[in-house]
């Protein structure tokens, strides 16, 4: 028996979530008294995963799947799960992970819980806590099948070092034409920008900024902090910012360490999507704005005065 962990990568480099799922998989394997096996696809050197407890890495190199392909990846995971006699498969609940996991579940006739936020509270019955109602609640869910699929919510468990002397085995995955029924034609991605999914810090701005011409200071603040930029829904609906920046209940979820909301009122739908962030800061002229009830720190003030000062002071702070 083993706990299989999918360590996702992009262009041969592990995503940050890969280290979190391996750390998590290691702990579940301890709970179940089994071993953790990490799966990588097209990563030349997977030894980085040993640091987080992966005793064994199964490495797949295949030039038919040089970019993410959910169906083909699901088939690869099924083949390896059968070979390794996996009793649990851990996949991150990222955009790609959420695409992949339900297909793996059906392939393995396994029950699946997504957006899980903690280690199982019990292994018999196998019970996990997951997000529900867009971060307004959690549900405790029993998975009753022999094989369990767990989708791990970002930043919920953390990355924990647990060095082992691991080994890497290569695996020759069989990919059929049917597995490649969905083909990637092209990818359009801002290069050199931190993504909302990967970011430790997210700087988000709302309608309080008055117009798209005022986003220069938001981008500058993000740059100083190495942060991603985000926005409220009306801002993307108005075309001030791209849809990809829309966060909240009907946009992207945010689970960063720090979320700074500037000129955002804090509507229930906005808060639902960003509540999983650890520390929240609000800057708003209106002391009655609902965001102040959800935030850890707040400044009642005009963004056009506070943000430039904050940038200047942060630059000095970073230099000291």
């Amino acid at each position: 028996m083993s706990v299989l962990v999918f360590a996702d990568s992009s262009e041969g480099k592990f995503k940050k979530s890969a280290f979190e799922v391996v750390s998590y998989g290691k702990k579940i394997a301890e709970q179940l008294g089994s071993n953790v096996v990490a799966v990588t696809i097209n990563v030349a050197d997977a030894s980085e995963l040993y640091t987080y407890g992966a005793e064994k890495v199964v490495s797949v190199s295949n030039d038919q799947i040089t970019t993410f392909n959910a169906k083909a990846y699901a088939s690869v995971l099924k083949q390896i799960a059968s070979k390794e006699n996996a009793s649990a498969v851990i996949i991150d609940s990222s955009i790609d992970g959420l695409y992949l996991a339900p297909m793996v579940a059906v392939n393995l006739e396994a029950g699946y819980a997504s957006n899980v936020v903690a280690l199982p509270s019990s292994t018999s019955p196998f019970t996990v806590k997951r997000k529900a109602f867009s971060n307004k609640a959690f549900s405790n869910t029993i998975i009753s099948t022999d094989v369990k699929i767990i989708g791990l919510a970002k930043n919920s468990f953390g990355v924990h070092e647990n060095p082992v002397s691991g080994t890497t085995e290569s695996f020759d995955a069989q990919i059929t034409d049917a597995d490649l029924g969905v083909k990637s034609v092209s990818v359009d991605k801002a290069t050199g920008k931190v993504t909302i999914a990967d970011a430790d810090i997210v700087i988000s701005a709302g309608r309080g900024l008055k117009g798209p011409e005022n986003w220069g200071m938001i981008e500058e603040l993000a740059e100083v902090l190495g942060a991603a930029t985000a926005c409220s829904k009306p801002v993307s609906d108005l075309g001030w910012r791209p849809h990809g920046e829309h966060v909240g209940q009907t946009g992207k979820p945010v689970a960063s360490n720090l979320y700074i909301a500037i000129g955002i009122s804090g509507a229930i739908q906005h808060l639902a999507g960003i509540n999983a962030s650890k520390v929240k800061v609000v800057i708003n002229t209106d002391p009655e704005a609902p965001f102040f009830k959800a935030a850890d720190y707040g400044i009642v003030g005009d963004a056009f005065e506070v943000v430039p000062t904050l940038i200047e002071k942060l630059k000095a702070f970073k230099q000291s």
């Binding site: 019970t127 529900a132 405790n140 869910t141 850890d296």
Partner: peptide, 17 residues
Amino acid sequence: QTATTSFEKPAAKGAVK
């Protein structure tokens, strides 16, 4: 294949500083 046995609400948050 799965069953929800109970729900919880997030812990109450302290006041903003």
